[in-house]
Computed example of a mutant assay.
Amino acid sequence: MNFLKKILFLKYKNNPYFHRFYTPIQNKPLEELTFCSFDLETTGLDMKKDEIISIGAIKIKNLKIDIGSKFYKVVKPSKIIKKESILIHGITMSDIEKAPPPEKVIPQFLEYIKGSILIGYFINFDISILSRYSQQLFGLPVLNPYIDIRDIYLSKLQKEYIPVEKRKEKTLEELAQEYKIPVEKRHDAFYDSLITALIFIAMVKKDKPTVEKIVKKVT
């Protein structure tokens, strides 16, 4: 565990919810670790103001998708969602009206990810928003280590000595295409998390040492 993480844990270890939502990640081979790929759909892209409207996740155990671990919840925001947003994710006001509020869903999800290394695409955005809710409800941020599959891809390009000016940012679809993973649906929190999980597994198969190095760095 790096110095900054130690400081963070010292800050929050006496929080009454610390042990409910967090357990240390042991130094183990990749095959023995639990990863959790997750994605949020939100009312917009402002990390400080916009709200979660759905959470999707799937766990990876023994470097295989754990189908039985699927997590998907629609979350009721405090404000009416924009029509443009509905066109992207397909979640309607009818879906929202029937959905539970954040205070019901967020603790379920924090318990679900306990003991997992989180994986995502542009994951800093999702972690920031989820941490905002966790701070508001329980007084502590998301403490799980996390990895962005974009960083794994960047490490791959660096190993191949591809010049910085030629390194193009890839969309999730483009990454999936490169690793021969079909994409049938997008902007659905669960399916995006599933695609991300499949890309991660493919990355491990192609370059396990790089992934091991990144995992070791975040844990």
Rank of each mutant, 00 (worst) to 15 (best):
M1N: 11
F3W: 13
L4C: 08
L4R: 12
K6Y: 07
H19D: 13
Q26W: 04
N27V: 04
N27F: 04
K28D: 03
L30Q: 07
L33F: 11
T34G: 00
F35A: 06
F35K: 10
C36H: 03
L40R: 08
D46N: 15
M47I: 15
M47A: 12
D50A: 09
I52G: 01
I55P: 01
A57N: 06
I58F: 11
I60W: 09
K61Q: 11
I65L: 15
D66S: 11
I67G: 00
S69V: 10
K70S: 13
K73E: 15
I80M: 03
K82N: 13
K82Y: 11
I86R: 05
I88M: 04
H89N: 14
D95C: 05
E97D: 08
P102W: 01
E103L: 06
K104L: 10
F109I: 00
L110Q: 09
L110R: 09
E111S: 11
E111H: 04
I113H: 04
I123F: 06
N124Q: 12
S131R: 05
F138A: 08
Y146N: 14
D151H: 12
K156M: 13
K159Q: 14
E160A: 14
Y161H: 13
I162T: 08
I162K: 12
I162G: 07
E165F: 09
E165L: 09
K166G: 03
K170T: 04
E178V: 00
K180A: 07
K180G: 00
I181R: 03
E184P: 00
K185I: 13
R186E: 01
D192A: 11
A197N: 08
I201H: 03
K205H: 10
D207W: 13
K208N: 05
K208S: 09
V211H: 07
K213Q: 07
V215S: 08
